[in-house]
Design a protein around this nucleic acid. Structure first.
Lengths: 231, 231
DNA sequence: CTTCACCGTTTTGCATACAGATGCCGCTCG
DNA sequence: CGAGCGGCATCTGTATGCAAAACGGTGAAG
């Protein structure tokens, strides 16, 4: 503890709360921290080389975002959800994607449309190569472009938030054989509708593109007995 | 400060963080705290009879909810938004209401449908009486029933969150003459569609029921010079 | 008259200390 | 042998103190 104080005088060490929030939420989203994992304040404080005070603030913020669950006098826990809630998130995601696609079809600038189409075409090779990692990156950018193209900041926030909460539960997305090609084809349908400014078609294509999976047994298995409580 | 410690031994005084979050967010939502108002930690600490630590946590949580804006080394400020962002929230609200109405038309139980219709009919008298306060309460319950009737918890969270953020900007809702009757009639259209399980009609009726108003000049006026900065 | 710089005051950010709550483990008693 | 209980270890919740950053006002220079 004294060491810490001394160190702060020399290097500007210690992380800010914002950085911690980012770091922890990244760990949750990427699956480094699985649903059900306990986040005790002291360990985190040591890990980030700060005192418990900023850690607590970060955890509270994560709690407000829904990434962790906090009960009084108990450690924060990476949020685990019931299958019903998971299903509701996927369904909501489909609706949000549909809204974004619809609005994108109506509002994207010429440049945005062109860029979307270009990127989409350019990544066809990833499908043939079966490059899962790279395709996943392309996929993220594709969807982000849709979200931005809607030109509605609040919708953007909602969809980003939902996507983050959903991320821990769909990590193995492109592992299944043929999923890449199917995804790419569905993207193509969305792109076509947007280029035609066909809002209804874009919305439908985007809605059906979201795989509404409520089976998270793999994740639930690792989370163990927490499962029942988070209802 | 010593006084505080002594007092805590006698009465269980001091508010919990959760209570403070509730209290402050209520003040923001009801308009007791106008957009642009500064929330300094010490004043709040005194007001709630706690130290700055829990106040800071409450403010951080409110920040994560979007009700206050926090910049480094600066007081938290009740969120003010640009007209563009305000517009995006209203538009998002319309989309969310449409989703809820659509899903309600598909999924409400018989009891839920009956209760909705009964409440709606029962409050016709409020329109004739011009009872703005009571109508406002009915209105809130009406919409909440729609949100619940969608049977989608994540959508419920999003719509509740959006409504809370929007609340400070539409307080004078039912003041305009004829607005009550118009609102009631629009509700009627939604109810009818839901009773018929006509999802598309319910969605459209709900969408057009949301008045997309992006003129918040009244609120902005009180917020003063903060207005320009919150972009 | 305006603008910029400097210094004291105020306020935030964080570390630390302490009190209360929770959970665990062994002990005792039935 | 099992169930209930007490005490200890651990962890959260909050108060407090200190350092650093921002704000405000005054004065001097242009």
């Amino acid at each position: 503890m004294v060491k810490q104080a001394r160190r702060r005088e020399i290097i500007r060490a210690g992380t800010t709360v914002e950085q911690m929030v980012r770091a922890i939420s990244d760990m949750i989203v990427t699956g480094a921290l699985l649903p059900g994992a306990k986040l005790d304040e002291v360990s985190l404080a040591v890990r980030f080389d700060v005192s418990r005070t900023p850690v607590r603030e970060a955890l509270r913020e994560l709690g407000a975002m829904g990434l962790v669950v906090r009960e009084p006098n108990r450690s924060a826990v990476v949020t685990n959800v019931t299958e019903a809630y998971l299903h509701s998130m996927f369904e909501a995601m489909a609706e949000l994607e549909a809204i974004c696609a619809k609005l994108s079809a109506e509002r994207m600038t010429v440049d945005e449309r062109r860029a979307l189409e270009l990127m989409h075409r350019g990544s066809m090779r990833l499908v043939h190569a079966g490059a899962q990692e790279e395709y996943s990156a392309y996929n993220t950018e594709f969807h982000t472009r849709l979200y931005r193209g809607a030109h509605n900041d609040h919708v953007f926030e909602m969809v980003t938030w939902t996507r983050a909460r959903l991320a821990p539960f769909r990590r193995a997305q492109f592992r299944l054989p043929g999923r890449l090609a199917k995804s790419y084809e569905e993207h193509g349908r969305i792109v076509t509708a947007i280029m035609r400014a066909d809002a209804a078609a874009a919305g439908q294509a985007a809605y059906s593109h979201v795989e509404i999976v409520s089976d998270a047994s793999a994740v639930f298995a690792t989370a163990g007995k927490r499962r029942a409580r988070d209802a």
